[in-house]
Amino acid sequence: MTEATMEEMATSLKGRDFLSLADYTGEELRYLIDLSIRMKKQHKAGEIVQPLKGKTLGMIFEKSSTRTRVSFEVGMYQLGGHALFLSKNDLQLGRGETVWDTAQVMSRYLDGIMIRTFAHRNVIELARGSTVPVINGLSDLEHPCQVMADYQTVLEHKGRLEGIKIAYIGDGNNMVHSLMIGAAKLGMHIAVASPEGYEPDADVTKVSKENAAQSGGTVLVCRDPKEAIAGADIVYTDVWASMGQEEEQEKRIKAFRGYQIDEQLAKYAKSDYLFMHCLPAHRGEEVSEGVIDGDQSIIFDQAENRLHAQKAIMAATM
């Protein structure tokens, strides 16, 4: 990407929301990934880069978090700005004020808003009412910031994204939705294996396949974990019961029997495959201890890159 193209890209991203990877082109996503890698190198070298000096990010948390809270707050500090933590108990949202009114008011105080919530409609409504950029820190439909960190991690370890095969084994949740959309935009191959009734959203699958046809990637959704993982460069999973689904835990453990990523299943991937998990993990359920704690696991590189990927998103949009 030339300097002129990078300048054009930077200008085009300023002021935009970051709600879904579907809203961005493959070139824009790659620009943000490259920016996050550059910011990471600058930080490791001790360089002080503060493009958001004097700016404030409001962070709305309706769902608790470790990585999202710490990475956004630290990231904003490193960029020269200030992050304000707001739980649902700190806002009138919990007492009946509309998302629209909240967005209107917060836009008068803040330079950007991050929201981690249950319903994706809250993210959309917040962005509609806001006059400052809104970043989706997680919703029940997508987890775009996590996937930006994930694909940054893949690029760092594999040296490329185009043509890389990622196999996702498990629940067709918000995590896999963003993985599918991102892979399709970036020219990657993604194969997803889920039990009946737990497949990825049909509309997300349709859009991902359409994007993959244009980028040179492919999207496969199937039942058989062995089919999905065959020849994979990256093997990925997530918990079987996400936050808010705790009452389904026992039911899901039965439904996902045979979908654990263990040493036997991993043999179907490439010999130099890498294992990824967005965390938190339930060792002994969706993944064996031998895989997640093995030499081919890069889960903590992923976690670290949440900081840098989100710094790139904030710097570009805010």
Score class of each variant (00 low, 15 high):
Val105Asn: 01
Glu125Ile: 10
Glu125Leu: 13
Ile135Val: 15
Asn136Arg: 01
Thr131Ser: 15
Arg108Pro: 08
Asn122Tyr: 14
Ser130Val: 15
Val105Gln: 07
Leu126Phe: 03
Ile135His: 05
Ser107Ile: 06
Ser107His: 13
Val105Cys: 03
Met106Glu: 09
Val123Asn: 03
Asn122Asp: 15
Gly129Phe: 08
Ile135Asp: 04
Val123Cys: 08
Ile115Trp: 04
Gly112Glu: 03
Ile124Val: 15
Val123Gly: 05
Met106His: 07
Ile115Ala: 05
Met106Thr: 00
Met106Ile: 01
Ala103Asp: 05
Gln104Ser: 13
Ser107Glu: 08
Phe118Gln: 07
Ile124Gly: 02
Arg121Gln: 04
Leu110Met: 10
Gly112Trp: 03
Ile113Lys: 01
Val132Glu: 00
Arg108Ser: 02
Asn122Ile: 11
Val134Gly: 07
Gly112Thr: 09
Leu126Lys: 02
Gln104Phe: 14
Arg108Val: 05
Arg128Met: 06
His120Gly: 00
His120Met: 04
Met114Ala: 13
Ile115Thr: 02
Ala127His: 11
Glu125Cys: 00
Ile135Met: 11
Met114Phe: 14
Met114Arg: 02
Arg121Ile: 00
Leu110Gln: 02
Val134Tyr: 08
Pro133Leu: 01
Gly112Asp: 01
Gln104Val: 15
Gly129Ile: 01
Gly129Ser: 14
Gly129Gln: 11
Val105Ser: 05
Thr131Glu: 05
Asn122Leu: 11
Tyr109Cys: 02
Val132Trp: 06
Val134Ala: 11
Leu126Asn: 07
Thr117Ser: 14
Met106Tyr: 04
Ala127Phe: 04
Val123Met: 11
Ile135Phe: 01
Leu126Gly: 12
Arg108Cys: 11
Ile115Glu: 01
Ala127Lys: 10
Ile113Ala: 00
Leu126Glu: 09
Val134Pro: 14
Leu126Asp: 08
Met106Phe: 12
Val132Lys: 11
Gln104Lys: 15
Thr117Asn: 03
Val105Glu: 07
Arg116His: 09
Ala119Phe: 14
Val134Gln: 10
Tyr109Pro: 03
Gln104Cys: 13
Phe118Cys: 12
Ile135Glu: 09
Tyr109Gly: 05
Arg121His: 11
Val134Asp: 12
His120Val: 04
Ile124Thr: 13
Ile135Leu: 14
Ile113Gly: 00
His120Trp: 02
Arg121Cys: 09
Arg128Asp: 05
Leu110Ile: 12
Ile115Asn: 11
Arg121Ser: 07
Pro133Gly: 03
Met106Cys: 07
Ala127Met: 02
Ile135Arg: 04
Asn136His: 06
Val105Trp: 06
Leu126Pro: 13
Thr131Gln: 10
Val132Pro: 09
Tyr109Trp: 15
Gly112His: 13
Thr131Arg: 14
Gly129Pro: 11
Leu126Met: 02
Ile124Asp: 04
Leu110Tyr: 09
Ala127Pro: 12
Glu125Asn: 14
Asp111Leu: 12
Arg116Gly: 14
Met106Ser: 03
Gly112Gln: 08
Val132Phe: 06
Asn122Thr: 12
Leu110Thr: 02
Phe118Asn: 07
Gln104Trp: 13
Ala119Glu: 10
Gly129Cys: 07
Glu125Pro: 09
Ala103Pro: 12
Asp111Gly: 08
Met114Val: 15
Ile135Gln: 06
Ala127Val: 03
Ile115Pro: 06
Asn136Glu: 03
His120Lys: 04
Gly112Lys: 00
Gln104Pro: 10
Leu126Ile: 15
Gly129Tyr: 08
Ser130Gly: 04
Ala103Glu: 00
Ser107Met: 12
Leu126Ser: 04
Val134Glu: 04
Val132Tyr: 05
Asn136Val: 09
